[in-house]
Amino acid sequence: MASSSARAYPREKSLWLFVVPSALVVLGIQLYPVLYAVYLSFFDYHIGQSQPRFVGPDNYLALLGQDRVWASLRTTVILVASSLAVEFALGLLLALGLYKLTRGARLFSTLIFVPYLITPVVAALFLRWIFAARWGLADAVIASFDIFPPDWLGSPVWAFVTIIVADVWQFTPFVMLILYAGLQGMDEALLEAGKIDGASGPRLVWHIILPCLRPQILFVLAIRLMDSFRTFDSIYVLTGGGPGTATETLTMYTYALAFKQLDLGRASTLGVLTMLIVTGLTLMIISLMYRRERGAF
């Protein structure tokens, strides 16, 4: 390790030149806008009427005092936590199932993988046609037996569940795939040793398989956490944040502030707050990953 870095040293400068173009893009088109948004968050800025007016921390104070913000934070957290939990549990079960299959694993993994490849807006539409009141597949099938199913998209609680189902439907395949790949890379001798020690079923999973999969588990959790925090497409299509504000997440509310009310100051403020929350949470997971898997970095 040390010797190779010593040899690489003289070329370090020229190697950095490779990084420069991409770094300029990242700095110019990603970092600068974020800093600009942070700057805007201290202004009362509404397109169409006034000039930006410096208001200090007023936007932050006003938003933190709004129950709509707290409600959307709560919605976001519950949404992320529940879909993460369900996706992980299902994904793990499916991966174990695939691993156990003696034949046909490839076929099943391909079939189950399909939803992950669909454009999210289209995926949400597909589910809308399942859950649409009365004419959707779910209702049509259930109502054929003269049973009247719940209001999937119209009642606050069920709308929420439907959004989670949508996320689970589309992203469980991703979790499954990663964990399955981890299982395939696992040392079978460990399993055999566990069996000789008399471990079985859940104990085997808990004590041997899960520890082996740690890097994959942390990876899927980190990725899904980042991505589900910014879920937008499926909510926009399925419920638009409704009924009322029942499925309005931080992203949805920020969107409404920015592009329905054109209140760019407050929208930036809410965006910054979201960023702080997501970054905090994800860094927590990454530091876990980093501590355990120092070598990988």
Binding site: A133, R134, F148, D151, W152, L153, T239, P243
Partner: peptide, 8 residues
Amino acid sequence: APRGYTAN
């Protein structure tokens, strides 16, 4: 109102 009226 019909089921789903808030989403109608």
